[in-house]
Every structure is written in structure tokens, then in C-alpha cells.
């Protein structure tokens, strides 16, 4: 199996790490070689964050470089635009339509690019989902990460029960039902 690359991008605090672990745990049950890479520390504090998931027969580099991502799973619209250069030719961006304003926009130094998703659609395959509404429907705005993982799951060739198993091993039991609902809403969107 050729190595596949999924880049998960968003804003620190949105739960990109949980999404990558959810995908990673689903993948290892298939017997694939899997590598996940994440950055901790300062960038977690509301900054732009990136997590990588790679799988295949043998995965070497844990990083995804420019032009290498089969999928970019973006938790925020502007971040989808920021990471477009990493998308492989023919790759797909799955993005939340939510806007979270970065500090230069809050302080008025720069404007938020309101039409970023339209521009992206002109340059790449884009699946845009209002994951925040679906997460709220599932019971918590924090479930955006699991909703989006559900959307991505449609594009990955893994059986449904593998995802259910991964949810059970990755998510604390207290939030399992909520997250199962969030995942389903994403998968059925």
C-alpha cells in the first residue's frame, strides 16, 4: 500500500490531537504502519497548529511536506487556506466553515479573508462542512474534532466498526455517546 498522508490543521485548543489519535487508532487495527506527529508547547496556546497522520506499508518521515497531503482536514476556514500548499495534486481539503479570528485580525492590523473558501474551491477539491452546528447538535461545541473525523471517515476505506472501536479506545467513557453521535453526524453529512 502506498503511503497516504492526512494533515490535520486548526487553532490550538480545538482538539486536533484527539482527531489524530482517533484516526491513528482506527488505522493500526488494519495492520498498517502508522505515524502521527504533533507539536506541543507554546503553539498550543491559540496558535495555528498542525498534526500529521501517515499510513502505509512502511512509513518513514512523520512529516508531511509541501505538495504531499492526500487530505487536509481543517478545523477552521482560514487555516485551510494557510495549508493549501501542502495539498498533493488531486488531494482533497475537508474543512469546517467556522471562522476563528487570529490576533492580528482582532487588533485590526489585518482583515479576515471572508471569501477564503471560495478561493480555495477555485484551486482544489474542497468539502466544506458547518462542523460547529453539527457538534452543537451532538451536544457540545467541543465535538467539532469528532464531527470532522466523521466527515473524513467517508473518504477513507475503513469498515465502520473500526471507527466505533477507535472511538471506544480513544474517548473517555463519559463522553463516548456524545462523540459517537458527533461522529455519525459528520459521517452522514
Amino acid at each position: 500500500m502506498e503511503t497516504k498522508s492526512i494533515m490535520i490543521v486548526g487553532v490550538g485548543g480545538q482538539g486536533t490531537l484527539l482527531a489524530s489519535r482517533l484516526i491513528g487508532n482506527a488505522l493500526i487495527s488494519t495492520g498498517a504502519d502508522v505515524k502521527l506527529s504533533e507539536v506541543h508547547g507554546m503553539s498550543q496556546r491559540g496558535g495555528s497548529v498542525v498534526t500529521y497522520v501517515k499510513y502505509g506499508d512502511t512509513v518513514h518521515s512523520p512529516l508531511i511536506d509541501l505538495g504531499e497531503a492526500d487530505y487536509i482536514l481543517s478545523f477552521e476556514a482560514l487555516e485551510a487556506g494557510r495549508f493549501l500548499p501542502y495539498l498533493k495534486k488531486g488531494g482533497t481539503i475537508i474543512t469546517n466553515t467556522q471562522h476563528i479570528l487570529p490576533m492580528p485580525v482582532i487588533t485590526g492590523q489585518m482583515a479576515y479573508p471572508e471569501n477564503v473558501l471560495d478561493e480555495l474551491k477555485a484551486k482544489a477539491n474542497v468539502i466544506a462542512v458547518d462542523a460547529l452546528s453539527l457538534a452543537e447538535q451532538a451536544g457540545s461545541p467541543k465535538a467539532v474534532n469528532v464531527v470532522l473525523t466523521g466527515v473524513l471517515s467517508k473518504a477513507m476505506d475503513l469498515p465502520e466498526e473500526v471507527w466505533q472501536q477507535s472511538l471506544e479506545t480513544t474517548v473517555p467513557p463519559k463522553f463516548l455517546e456524545l462523540n459517537k453521535k458527533a461522529f455519525r453526524l459528520g459521517r452522514e453529512s
Binding site: L66, G67, P104
Partner: peptide, 20 residues
């Protein structure tokens, strides 16, 4: 050779880390 890469035409605002 490097993989093909594209970007948006406009400059995007940076998103530095901030106090929570």
C-alpha cells in the same frame, strides 16, 4: 524534483499563539 504545490493569491493573517 519536488512535489507540485500551490497557494492562495492573497497574503493571509498569521495566527501566533496567544494568552488563553
Amino acid at each position: 524534483p519536488l512535489p507540485e504545490s500551490r497557494k492562495l493569491d492573497e497574503a493571509l493573517p498569521v495566527r501566533p499563539p496567544v494568552l488563553c
